[in-house]
Every structure is written in C-alpha cells, then in structure tokens.
Design a protein around this nucleic acid. Structure first.
Lengths: 357, 357
DNA sequence: TTGAAAGCGCTAACAG
DNA sequence: CTGTTAGCGCTTTCAA
C-alpha cells in the first residue's frame, strides 16, 4: 500500500498499469482514443488500488465545480422544503450537485454565503433573496458572470432571471372569494412587504377591496416580519377589537399555525364565526378541522422551471448575453370548508369578542 | 481588463501589485510574514481587480473541501427538514458548507451520491442511510477514511458513529400510555422494519404488550414501506375489520396525514371512538382537532450532536483511530387530546364499523 | 520579509 | 494509439 495509507491518485494507477497518467486518464474518463487492451489494464490497476478520481482536481482543471448553490431563508417552511427536495433530484439528473444554505433571513449570512458560493465557484446559483434591494450585491453576481435564477422574491429591477408565483393575481382571487361570500370586514395578516411576494399579495388585497368599493380599515391590517410570532399576535389583536373582522386572509402559510392556535384558544368557530383563507397550501390544510381553503401552487413546477432556466444559461456560450427572463407560476383556488358567508348573513348578529367568550 | 473578461487570478493581482504570487498569497490569506506596506499594496490591487480567491483551487492545495455531505431520504418530512436547516447553520459557523442530497429511499441514488461525495472528497459525511445492511458500502466509507456519522437509522454492526432517537423506549412509553388508559385492542402502523428506527419501535410495541399480557393480533399490525399511501391504506383496513382496534399507534409522522384523512372520511371521532398516538411530533399536531398526543424529540439536539461528533473526528490526527461512538437522543411524551379510555370503559359498547357509519 | 519553484490531482494540446 | 508537457489557481517549503 501507499505510504500513510493515502488515497490512490491517477499517478499510482498509471504506475501500476505501466502507462502514463495521460493514458490512464483516457482509460478512466473514457474520452480520447485508447487501445482496448491498455484500457483494461488501467481499469484493473484502478480497481486494485481502489482508485476513485478526485473530483475537486478534475473540476479545477475543467473550470467547473458541478455544484449549484441554493440559498433560501430557511427549511422550516414547506414552501422551501419541497423546493430543495425537487431541486436536489433534478440537478442530480443533470449531473450537478446541490450546495444548500439557509440564511434565516439574515442579510449578513446571505452575503457571506453568496460570497463563498461565487468564490468556489459554483456553476450556477438558485436564490430566494432576503436582501433583494441591494443593487451592489446583484451587480456582484452579474460581474462574476454566474448563471443565477431568483425565486419567489424578485430582486431590484429584475436584474436576474426570475420565477415567482402569481402573487397579485392569487391574492385577488382569494379576496374576491371572500367578497363573493358577502364579507366586508376582511383582515389581512402578511409578511414583510419589502419582499416582492408579500408586497404583491398585499397590493392585490388592496386593489380588490378598492375595486369592490370596500374601505380598508387600518386596524384590520397586520404586517410584520417575524413569521414565528406574527400569526398569533395579529390574530389576538384582531379578536380583541370591538368590531372584529368576519374573515381573515392569511398571506403566508407560515402564519397559519399562530392564527389557528389563537382562534382555538378563543373558541372562535371556523367558518361560522370567522372565515379563513390562506395564500399557500400545506398538506395538513386538507384534514385540519375544518379543512382550510387556500391558494395552491405546484412547487415542483417552480423547481422544474428554475432548473430549466439555469441549464439554459449554463449551456450558453456567452452566459450573460441574453437579458434576464421573468416567469410566473400559476395557481389554483382550492375551496375547502374554512370560508362561509359572514354571520350576519347567516341569520346571526355581528360577532364581537364578548359574544364569543 | 483581462482577456475575455475572465475572473482575476492571484497571478493578476501579484502582477499588478508588483510582487510574486507567493507574497500576494500571504497578503490575502493573512498567513506568514509580510511587510505591512506590501500587504496593503496587494490588497489594493486585489480590490481593483475585484479579486476573489478561487476556493476550489485553495481547497485542492490544502487537501480539503470545506464541504460536508448530507444524505437523507427526502425533504418532505419535517424530521429531516429541521435537521438540514440546523445543520446548514451549525456547519457554517464551523467553516463548513453543506452538500445536500435526497435519495427518495432509492439505494441506487444513495450509492451514487455517496460515491460522488467521497470522490470529491467531502471533509465529512452525515448520513441517514437507506441501505443500512450493505457492509460493502460501509467498508467503502471506512476505507476512504472519511469522518462519517450516521443518523436516525443504524448501519449494520454500528460500524460508524451513530446517533439515533430512543426508538424502543419511546415506543414503550407510547404503548404503555395506551395500556394505562385501558386499551387492549391496539393497532400498529409503521414503516419498513429493515430500518433500525422502525424495527426498534416495532419491537418496543411488541415487548410492551407482551409484558402486559396482551396478545398481539396480527390483523392489527400494518407494516409497509410506502409512506405516501401506507397511512391511508392501513387505517382503512383497520376500520373495516369486524372488531376494529380502539387505539392506533402511528409509528411515524409521515403516516399521520393518511390516517387522519381516513378517520375523518369514516366519521370516526377521536378520541371517543379511536385513540391516536404518534411517535414523532409535528407543529400542526398541537392545533389539529383534537390535538394529537405524541412522542416528541428535540431535533436540534440531534443536529448539534451530529456536528459535534463529526468535528471531533475531523479534527483528530488519525481520523479512524477511535472506535465508532453510539449516542441516543431522548424524548418526551406530550399528552394532548387524541387519547382517552376506550369506549367500553366510557360506558359505551365496543365499536365496530357498522355502529360508526 | 520576499521570490523561485514545486506540486495538490487531474486533463488537454501536441508530437510522435 | 500513447507519452510528454503544460497548466487549472492556489499554498508552501526553501533559499536568498
């Protein structure tokens, strides 16, 4: 065996097979002309030494890393989870591997990760941006000429390839559904509007109400950035109002646990006392009590589109020649049982917290 | 600018600063003696050229990759999701990055990933094995001298560092809880027992019933490997029996959706008609209707322990000198409202499907 | 304190 | 078809 039991290198294989490293390389990589006999000899030697090519060295030489970076806010949200799962599969099929990191919505971490990934360098980048307004950061990515696609949240001026859900349209449909049921006192709980996703949903909400001639009551609007606590805090505030809403539009699935917990705590019946609709769907929504009406998206579609866009750019000679593409993923409104006409239309009176306790 | 707009290399920087690459390297990496003045000159040149070290090249030279591989069955289960999220963070703090891949419980994919990762090579491996009985595969890992830790499922002979949940003990406690409530007709729905986790839970179930002198009825036992459909199929079969169980022990969170869906479909009331206890906890269990009693684990503990074990080995001179370690993560029984005494102890009669429809 | 030179492990151009 | 040579971009002796 080798000194120190070190991993065999191509040189060792070549030596044992009695060829040059070049020939050994040809035998193993299967490229270039080579005599069948010598090829077999090399392969035998390789097997004997338990040889496995060092991919890092190969990649350095070939100016690629076969790595695609994925930067997401976190993996505690099924939103990103299913994305990461699909991407891992799809990339593997294309011969790439997934370098994952989760920023916890911390711009510092995000910048560090971006820097490390581009420094490696990765062959491509898939990114759900936290800090999407920082032109310097995006310029940096462009300068590095790294094929990159931005997901879910748009970056400033859409400077990179982008795929988002139809946030505004989805939001409109959700709100219209509540309006159609007869709701006028509609609350909105949603995330940080600095992210385009939240911004557009919020906008869709406003526009739909305005178009319907319903005035937006500021107390009904709960915007925040801490998805851990926002749902619970906002719901509690809404319930404690003297004239609480009759319906809540929850603009992110991450907020639903808090909202539902609070509703239960106050013994609010859904949908009799309160209608609930959520912008994104989760598996347990369908067998929650009651099942939750939601706007759903096919997340694998997003993953497929992302990989397509990325491969498209990776395989292009001048990777940055064509202008950034912009795509959206469509949605469905899945009617379940968490929405119904408001109480006063059901024959009852307008509910207030006093009635409900 | 450079020809072809290529990324600046250390050589370019050195040239611009009027030093050798060696000196430039010292300036940038911050190691070795260097005059403050020349250091500044180099850094200035680097900034001007937008220089960023090529980490792949650096790593090749330093015989490391700063990459830790993570292989898991999939990311659709919160079990692994929270793990990946925590690991990404923890490793980042230690200066490592996460290379993730998801096998979908396909041994073929698993083997391919393992091969690629060790070939790169990664500096460490964290692995939830799918194929844990293949000694060749594990020998291969050992031969490569890669620090590796196995999670959740044990590999044959515990040949690698291992951290698992206390499957058997947790299972015992869950079953004992049902026995204490007075249940004797207890069903078990669980995953492929070729995985140690499922095997041990299954064993714990059997032992506890035996110790209590309760005979195990084969019809009540539903083992399978397809977590997508097993819950639903098994629950349906159980409900269609002439003498259905009064309680179900669901041995994996992934099966709960199917079980609950089925229960709802047949209008079975929980816990009045049927008690449910689950081996692993999910966030929505706490506000499901009714909230689900479960065995819970602190998944971040698992992540921390995994990183500790891994770093421990990575930093050891002779990485494989010490024998594999074996650790377990403890659990809690969280009593919620999905378990209650069986119907006949509540004053009713033994339920059968006819009564319930 | 600095530079020349070797080399991590591999591939690719060019001769032969 | 095969070997020689050069080099990917970096770090690290070793001399100076």
């Amino acid at each position: 065996m080798n000194p120190k039991n070190k991993r065999a290198s191509l040189k060792d294989v070549a030596q044992l097979a009695g060829t040059s490293t070049a020939t050994a390389s040809r035998a193993i990589s299967g490229r270039g002309y080579i005599d069948e006999k010598t090829k077999l000899a090399v392969l035998a030697a390789a097997r004997e030494l338990n040889y496995q090519p060092n991919l890092q060295a190969r990649n350095l030489r070939q100016q690629s890393s076969c790595l695609v970076g994925l930067i997401i806010p976190n993996l505690l949200n099924a939103y990103y989870t299913s994305l990461a799962d699909s991407l891992s599969q799809l990339l593997y099929e294309k011969g790439y591997h997934l370098w994952l990191s989760s920023t916890r919505d911390d711009p510092q971490v995000e910048e560090g990760m971006l820097y490390d990934m581009l420094g490696y360098p990765v062959d491509g980048l898939i990114w759900v941006p936290t800090r999407s307004d920082d032109e310097t950061l995006i310029k940096y990515i462009q300068d590095r000429q790294v094929p990159a696609v931005t997901l879910v949240r748009r970056v400033i001026k859409d400077m990179l390839d982008t795929i988002v859900f139809e946030d505004m349209a989805g939001s409109r449909v959700a709100v219209q559904h509540l309006l159609n049921l007869g709701h006028r006192r509609i609350a909105y709980i949603g995330g940080d509007t600095r992210h385009s996703s939240n911004h557009d949903r919020w906008l869709g909400f406003q526009q739909t109400l305005e178009a319907a001639g319903v005035e937006i009551q500021p107390d009904y609007i709960k915007l925040g950035s801490n998805w851990n606590t926002l749902g619970q805090v906002a719901a509690t505030e809404l319930l404690c109002m003297s004239a609480p809403p009759t319906a809540i539009f929850v603009a992110s699935n991450a907020l639903m646990p808090g909202v539902l917990k609070t509703l239960r705590q106050y013994h609010i019946r859904v949908p009799e006392d309160m209608s609930i609709i959520c912008f994104d769907d989760l598996d347990w929504f369908s067998f929650s009590t009651p099942p939750i009406t939601a706007i759903t998206h096919d997340h694998t579609k997003l993953a497929h589109a992302a990989v397509d866009l990325l491969m498209n750019r990776i395989n292009k000679a001048d990777k940055y020649a064509s202008p950034p593409l912009f795509m959206t993923i469509d949605f469905d409104l899945v009617l379940r049982q968490s929405t119904a006409p408001p109480k006063h239309l059901q024959g009852g009176t307008l509910p207030s917290l006093k009635d409900l306790r």
